[in-house]
Design a binder for these strands. Structure first.
Lengths: 333, 333
DNA sequence: TTGTAGGCGTTATCAC
DNA sequence: GTGATAACGCCTACAA
């Protein structure tokens, strides 16, 4: 009985030899092409199984021009806001036997384009989340990245699918909610100035200029930013705070608790995203909820369409859903 | 001037033609081999730049037998406990121009082995986090997966590097801490019965049988599990609870808050992992802290060594560090 | 120092 | 229905 050279990788040739057929036939069988005689197919399958044959991914990629991999590029892999989409993408892609390659730009905004390109070259398509990349740079990059779908941020480019969030709408909902509770003077813990979604939120506030008294406090996008901002918040004499996102809001909540400030008794707090933790803190966090998992799934649908030469489904902009929880209440002043 | 066929991929041949050299020379230049004449190298570089040439990843993989990718297999991509290690791995690997392919087993324990193998075939090495895989199955799998490093769980196999956690030690620290605060009757919200690390924790409790009065409550590994366990915890008449992990602990905290139970006034709560949120909840969570990010970095070091045919650094078992925060206090009863 | 030629493991296009 | 054979794009002895 034919035996493969020990220690070396088993190739399609080994299987062909064992089964007494050509490599082409083995290939056909492995790929489920129906044009093969049943008895031969069985023989090939048996041989493959006996040798524990597994096709070389690299060789297939080269021959087919497809890697069966999609990239997921985000600014920070530890940010919970990106996890839902990552999982949605990963699970959806897995159904078509695609895998996800992750890339963390580690907040180095300058290297983002290079990293995106680098990642794209190993994949068939890309999901790009680049909230801080300058618009013109992004636009220049897009053609080189295609097929690509944009997450959470518009590039003003019709031809690349966008899965966006209407942050301004979320701001309006949150503010309306707070105003309904009697709040007038509200602080906004702003995200990174270079963040496109921060700009969107600010537009939302802009449209409400008459309804409330807004205090803008420069902050950031992370726990520690929210935590550090507590002092300024208290000094600002507001009755409610809207944080750039849930992570920031939770950072603030923690600091307020340490300082003995009652939430929502003395201060109401709200965020964006509805990360999994938001529902379980004490008090639970009021937030403008974003369907993260779905974002990832939809991203895959669009990628899949483009990979098959079809036109991707419509771009969509989700309107956040207000989820009122314990962290917001009647204005105290 | 030579012009590449429009629309098609630019290959090493195009660059060679433009520079007037052989493909071999281009290859040498692109790979930084010093044995090339300076002027020729410059010409090649210029040609490559002009054509915006980028080597085909698939072709290199096939020729080199290396994908420059490592896999990261976890049960649930949304579990914060895995994010730190993922980022540590990703960032460390990036320095050697390696990328990370993620795979989410979606809690389907049965498919875990297949998924691991499938993932491994696209990569040069694997970081495997398979807390629920039966020991014998894992042992059988390991040779097929090598080079591989195990995260958070021992397989009893000397030859595969392990980055583990001494959960029993963490249990002891937590219990000692609680006993020091006057607690005697303590509940343990157990993780999934099939979880190896749950078994480890139970061993820790076992060794303390005389010191405390332990109430074991079947629970799980997720928010909702902790949240749902609140009733049983209260019925059990304990003064302190140690949860399977921080996520469970936070779920419990949320439920207790809803029920108006004071923490730590009426009940002390502690967890494992020290996920980023733990420090920012109210009250902040006492926990047995695990160096997640470092785990990922060390995993990469070991993988890197093995990829270079070297012997990997020692396996290490981290002893969790007790981080006492607001969620634990003097026993009330 | 540079070029030639063969190989990496598949798939796809032909004949047969 | 099946088998040669030529891609796929790169790397690397080996020869020059």
């Amino acid at each position: 009985m034919a035996r493969q050279k020990s220690g070396e990788r088993i190739t399609i040739g080994d299987v062909a030899a064992l089964a007494g057929v050509s490599r082409a036939t083995v290939s056909r069988v492995m790929n489920g092409l129906a044009t093969v005689d049943r008895s031969i197919a069985d023989r090939v399958l048996a041989a493959a199984k006996q040798l524990n044959y597994m096709p070389s991914v690299a060789a297939r990629s080269l021959a087919l021009g497809r890697t069966h991999t999609v990239g997921y590029v985000v600014p920070d892999l530890t940010n919970p806001a990106f996890h839902g989409a990552m999982r949605g993408l990963s699970l959806a892609a897995a159904k078509q036997h695609y895998r996800v390659l992750v890339a963390d730009t580690a907040e180095h905004a300058e290297e983002e384009p290079i990293l995106a390109i680098e990642t794209r070259r190993r994949c068939d398509a890309l999901v790009l989340c680049a909230p801080r990349m300058p618009q013109d740079e992004l636009l220049r990059l897009l053609p080189e990245l295609a097929p690509v779908v944009l997450l959470n941020r518009d590039a003003g480019d019709e031809s690349t699918p966008l899965l966006g969030i209407d942050w301004a709408s979320g701001v309006r909902d949150l503010v309306r909610h707070l105003v309904g509770l009697g709040h007038r003077r509200i602080a906004y813990l702003a995200g990174p100035p270079s963040s496109a979604s921060n700009t969107d939120r600010l537009k939302g506030f802009e449209s409400l200029r008459d309804a409330i008294d807004l205090v803008q406090i420069p902050c950031g996008a992370m726990f520690s930013d929210g935590h550090a901002a507590a002092g300024q918040v208290l000094d600002s004499d507001v009755t409610a705070v809207i944080a750039f996102n849930d992570v920031v809001a939770l950072g603030l909540l923690g600091a307020l608790h340490e300082l003995g400030v009652q939430v929502p008794g003395q201060l109401s707090v709200a965020g964006f995203d509805d990360i999994p933790f938001a529902a379980f803190t004490s008090p639970a966090l009021t937030t403008a909820s974003v369907p993260q998992l779905e974002l990832g799934e939809l991203a895959w649908q669009r990628l899949w369409a483009m990979l098959n030469g079809e036109r991707p489904e419509h771009s969509v902009v989700f309107r956040p859903r207000l989820v009122a929880r314990g962290s917001t209440g009647q204005a105290s002043d």
